[in-house]
Amino acid sequence: MKIVTLVKHVPDATADRTFTADNTTDRAGVDGLLSELDEYAVEEALKVGDAGTDVEIIALTMGPGGAEAAVKKALQMGADSAVHVVDDSLHGSDALATAQVLAAAVTKIGDVDLVLTGMASTDGGMSVVPAMIAEYLGLAHVGFVGELTVSDTAVTARRDDDAASETIEAALPAVVSVTDQINEPRYPSFKGIMAAKKKPVETWTLADLGVDSGAVGLDAALCVVREVTKRPERSAGSVVTDEGDGGTKLAEFLAAQKLI
């Protein structure tokens, strides 16, 4: 079974993330890493292999030069090979262009049974790319999956929304995006880190994918960011130490603010 896991390289969420002059995410000024939520997708792919199915796992990323760090982590965890789509004209691509390029890469990889992705990237965080890829490829997409069973021909997934817990069945090939509830991603072992150095990483350009460079990037984006403003820091309020009356003081504050 051929599984593609989508891995995105993102600015570290615990660092000071900012924007560049053209209102795109600053990907140079901040250390990057594999979007943590994509580790769950890699782990789930590895688990299909652990369960006895013969799997080939390809980690796929689209992003600038540094994005290789994301595929490296996936290879260290246990993916077999990686594809990195990199092209100068991709800068500023919106979700639709990103999905179109990733869909083209999945097609070029060929005979893919399952595409596993994270529930959201930790920077853009729109949670739309997986469904868009499925739409471009004409495939089923099961999103926000908390429990997954993969057979030779189909996936069975449990997902919990506010109102209910659902069980979904979809025939392969399919796209599945998983939540951080689904598993506990493994840490790369020393053996895994050494093995990753020898694993193949292919670099593809838009020309390799047959995608028109005019259809992607900032100029082709179907949506423009007009303005970016840093949210004013919340000014710290008053803090009291409980001396037996902390709860009463809390209630008094709420009453003074007319919140009760």
């Binding site: 710290a236 309020g237 008053s238 803090v239 130490t241 209630a251 504050f253 009760i260």
Partner: peptide
């Protein structure tokens, strides 16, 4: 605490029940 409009440094197991009782009284 840096983002709190109001904060109580204390054990929630005593602060919350007291706040609850006071709110119910009010």
């Amino acid at each position: 605490f840096a983002m709190a409009d109001f904060g109580v440094v204390g054990d929630l197991h005593t602060v919350l029940p007291q706040a609850t009782a006071e709110i119910q009284k009010r």
